[in-house]
Design a protein around this nucleic acid. Structure first.
Length: 131
RNA sequence: UGAUGGCAGAUGAUCGCUGGCGGGAAGAAGUUGCCGCCAGAGGAAAGUCCGAACACCACACGGCAGCAUGCCGCGUAAAAGACGCGGAGAUCGCGCGCGUAAGCGCGCGAUCAUGGAAAGUGUCGCAGAAAACAUACCGCCACGCACUUUGCUCGCAAAGUGCUGGGUAAGGUUGAAAAGGCGAGGUAAGAGCUCACCGCUCGCGGAGCAAUCUGCGAGGCAGGAAAAACCCCAUGUGGUGCAAGACAAAACAGAGGAAGGGCAGCCGGUCCGACGUUCCUCGGGUAUCGUCGCAUCACGGCGUGCGCUAGCGCGCCGGGCGUUCAGUGAGAGCUGGACGAGAUAAAUGAUCAUCACGGCUGAGCGAUCAGCCGGACAGAAUUCGGCUUACCGCCAUCGAAAU
RNA sequence: UACCCCGUGGUGUAACGGUAACACAGCGCCCUUUGGAGGCGUUAUUCAUGGUUCGAAUCCAUGCGGGGUAG
């Protein structure tokens, strides 16, 4: 009864993407970078780490926008767009993985649509989309 | 095209992000997620160039060193230290006037880190005689000596040349800069040597809060530039920065006390004791998806909860501060209303539509319509006051130039 | 976020306030049958803009760029 109410509440906002679903600690980023596999694109680099845990937890994502992209405004905009792309496609991604998206300098001038196409292409190649 | 001031597109939809308050749910709790309401970047939030608040560390007193500042007045929390406003002076440019000239006066504009070069040390390349104590190169000048020529009254005169010592600083070349300028007198030649004017310095008086200006008199010219060379004088000045710093508590060092059996460990002495063990208290640095600092306030009153009290937390009302709007006032100001971001891999967003704005193209006599393109610089990070730099454009006021 | 340091040819370094020097690299020419070595030449808005000064790489101010330290 209580559990059902929780499910109903979650279903009312299916596209929510809170901080708990993001990678925030430096150790987590280092782990994905060293143990994960990377796919390189023109606008971004996608790194994926398979977790060994048995239970099917939701995936977690981290975003890297270095100073090479530009000023604070440019970096914020790119990070917002990448987060928006992952948020909108979060139900297409399977669970049990950590992913890190590193923006490359060309992403500073790319539009939202270009970033979205690039992300979908890389995600397909990395086999992280749900069946 | 310049100055000053203002603005930094709006509305809606869908999906989200962060914080606060209220509600209710899970959990032992820290917390976690849900629903509703409210709030959520700038004129530069930037650079970190100055200053302040605040925090910690250091601190007997005096001095030195170092650093900073440097015309005057006022304002500000900020004495001469950030800065603003006003004034004084200097330099440069333009125009006008006076004057033979040197120079002076007036107006407009721009710039100025604007104490001291008569305390000292050092510097001023090349060129030039000389670059700072004028030891004077070419010169100029008269006297003396020697020689030559001419003249004649035959040892003197004139002219010229050379030399030693002397007098000068007028003129010359150089340079960024040359020892007051210019005119007249004066002299063998010259020189402020003397004089007029101008500049300079000093003294006295007047105006001004002051910087400074100005009148009169005197001196006769010393005192080249540069202190963003060292330096001197005066004044000010502890250091580090919110990653400052405070707190919490797990584990781990360490200290003190108590309990307990003479043993599971070990030692001394021979049936007692130390270390160790267990518990309690104190305690240091470190780690932390930690908390506070930190979101306008070390203010007042009332209510309420906790507490023996002191006091602490929360709410409401009032007050102060800041921003902004409205009214009033010549202005200073006064009155009233509204509002007060707070993240931490770091919120304030993404997408779409409509309207407004600017530009271009096309159609139309025109109002206008259609299409395309554009919207900059840039993102709070302890807070505040300045400065500087970046910036698509739009609006208002004032001014200038050209056509 | 706070603080600190550094900017000279393509690279690494020099230069009391007085003509920007040296090495290596690059390019061109000479020498050589060819190449190497060697010789000669060339390559600088001293990060930018102002200021002080007769004169600035140097002194001063501001900006720009780069790097570092602190959890």
């Amino acid at each position: 009864m209580v559990k059902g109410a929780v499910i109903d509440e979650e279903a009312s906002h299916p596209l929510r993407f809170s901080k708990a679903q993001r990678l925030t600690r430096p150790a987590e980023f280092l782990r994905v970078k060293s143990d994960g596999q990377t796919r390189r694109g023109a606008l971004m680099v996608l790194a994926v780490l398979e977790l060994q845990t048995k239970e099917a937890t939701a995936f977690r994502a981290g975003f890297v926008t270095s100073k090479r992209l530009g000023g604070a405004v440019v970096r914020n905009r790119v990070r917002h767009r990448l987060r928006e792309i992952v948020r909108r496609h979060q139900h297409a991604v399977r669970g049990g993985i950590w992913i890190v998206i590193i923006a490359r300098p060309a992403a500073a001038r790319a539009s939202y649509g270009a970033l979205e196409d690039e992300w979908l292409r890389l995600a397909k190649r990395a086999f992280i989309l749900a069946p």
